[in-house]
Design a protein around this nucleic acid. Structure first.
Lengths: 137, 137
DNA sequence: CTTATTGCAAAGGTTTTGCATCGCT
DNA sequence: AGCGATGCAAAACCTTTGCAATAAG
């Protein structure tokens, strides 16, 4: 069982390990959920010459390889997250804060077995609610 | 209890009833899930002078009023649907066909009460699987 | 009659492409 | 050494804005 370093994620998928890619993965991992704008800002603060084209191309290949996942919150910009552990999102309708809740495919399948008996390849689940600190104010 | 005509949806929300708006709602209703490109194509086939700006502005106001909802399927264009009855999406990973499954907030809350005990304002739920006809081929 | 909506054209933002160079393996 | 990845600049998309003209209530 290997460690989930950015480097290993790439190697395990037979992708070339470049500074741009490992940094991209490090950043996505650090932020949890991040949009392309912030990725470019963050990445160029360490490697100033990285171009947006490289960021977009790498996001595509990482998604194709199942390492990264696109996440959408309606009305917000597309975000990206690591596709390592299956989870759902609890999003505060007021402040936008996102909490990840681990959720296995098998548990989900059980919850929805009244509705879907097919095999589930993947899922997107977001719940919108008002978080504790936003309820106070 | 009023009928859910496009006209009534607008009137109930104190929005002006214009030909562009009722047609937009009719189209979204007809297609179930539709992106802006197809909306513009469809709408101009009936009212040729409608501009994209009008479509975008109307989508915004309809969303603000809770009549329309943005739906995202990662890797695809943004789509729009009527926000009339709560439902989840079953999406075929192969052919992309989308099936709506009615689901009340209360039923959902029950399924996830082990995870979230707060009040749920809204949700986005998509399951990806392989549909019957795609399994054959 | 008043005010929101429309259509147009321009601007702004985001993502993709082509191609020459560079650098992993 | 070979082939994929990178950076750049341009192109292609997608969405918003400002404003004058129009039409809904």
């Amino acid at each position: 069982m290997r460690k989930f370093t950015s480097r290993n994620l790439l190697k395990n998928n037979k992708l070339k390990v470049t500074p741009q890619r490992t940094l991209l993965l490090d950043i996505i991992s650090k932020y949890g959920h991040i949009d392309t704008d912030s990725i470019v800002t963050e990445i160029t603060s360490t490697l100033p010459s990285v171009s947006v084209a490289t960021v977009y191309k790498n996001l595509s290949t990482l998604i194709e390889n199942g390492i990264v996942k696109e996440v959408n919150f309606p009305g917000k910009k597309k975000m990206y997250e690591l596709n390592i552990n299956k989870h759902i999102h609890l999003v505060c309708s007021k402040c936008g804060n996102i909490r990840d809740i681990d959720m296995s495919e098998s548990l989900l399948k059980e919850k929805f077995r009244d509705i879907i008996d097919d095999e589930i390849d993947d899922f997107n689940i977001n719940f919108y609610y008002t978080c504790k600190s936003c309820k106070k104010s």
